[in-house]
Amino acid sequence: MDVYLAERFTYHSRNEWQNLVGEGKIQLNGRSSRSSRRLVKGDRIEYDTGDITEPEVDPGFNVVFSDEHIIAVSKSGNLPCHPAGIFFRNTLWRLLSEKFGKIYFVNRIDRETSGLVLLARSPAVAAAMSEAHSGIVKKYTAVVHGKFPDACNAVGFLTDGVCSAVRKKRKFYQGARLGEKDEYSETKFRLLGANGGLSIVEAELATGRMHQIRATLCSLGFPLVGDKIYGRDETIYLRFIEDAMTDDDRSLLMIARQALHSSSLEFQHPISGEKLVFNAELPDDMKKLLAAT
């Protein structure tokens, strides 16, 4: 069991999971167990997280649209979409569940990405929209370092396991696929403006891969402003998770979170077939970033 927990939930080491099992905070099928217990199909693991203090978040969100089938919201730039790692109560999922009941994410964005998120209010609608996911036009606004070209269609692959101090960091490359597990990726970029060594870029996703925009921009040589992993110094992330960031780190980042905003969603309503277009205005922190440069 400890091996499974350490590989699946990496916010604790194997030894830490063993200690939690020994303390009785991990139960298997409703009972205390040994960390060496071999898991079988159908086993249920429960983790008592009652004594864990979750980091503070910005719980702000605006409901852009809702009916009996779907919900569209615009969230803050410091709010996880769904429970993961140390976050459970301080998530958009919990906030919306308290307001609407059961909900199902159609798309998700990073904790530090602000803007539009689409949800379904039933498993059937969620499944229908998942199948039609390629028909959802998703556009983001990003602020990057450097002078970005007028347009760029980045077609290639995303790979894991790059030579990096940050284990989950990905890399985008173009050309022939090098690894069997590398994922095809396509992002259409368009320059919106430039200001003081920074560029404002629109990114339209043709595929939806983890860290797609952030990793692609970094690999193209235009790192996202404020990005602790894909920005100008990835070691900032290592200090961030240890709560050891310096004033120099904050100065280099220029903004407290990654300057990425989910700005537009366009799709057909899964039931009525009506064309829907939602837009979310750039948040204040990104406006201030641009005004200060």
Rank of each mutant, 00 (worst) to 15 (best):
E7C: 05
F9M: 06
H12Q: 14
G30R: 06
S33A: 15
S35Q: 11
S36Y: 02
L39M: 12
R44V: 15
T53G: 11
E54T: 09
F61W: 03
V64F: 04
I70F: 11
S74H: 02
K75N: 08
K75G: 09
P83W: 00
A84G: 14
L95H: 08
S97T: 14
E98S: 14
G101R: 04
Y104N: 03
F105N: 10
N107E: 03
R108Q: 12
D110Y: 09
E131Q: 15
E131S: 15
A132D: 15
A132G: 12
A132H: 12
H133F: 13
G135K: 11
V144N: 00
H145I: 11
P149V: 03
D150R: 14
A154C: 08
V155N: 07
V162F: 05
A165T: 13
K171Q: 15
Q174N: 01
A176L: 14
R177H: 07
E183Y: 08
L191M: 07
Q212D: 05
I213E: 05
R214N: 01
L217E: 02
G221A: 11
F222V: 03
V225E: 06
G231Y: 10
Y237D: 05
L238E: 15
R239T: 12
F240C: 08
I241C: 10
S251R: 14
L260E: 04
S264D: 10
E266P: 06
H269M: 11
P270A: 10
S272M: 01
F278S: 06
A280F: 07
E281T: 13
L282N: 02
D285S: 12
L290A: 09
A292Y: 08
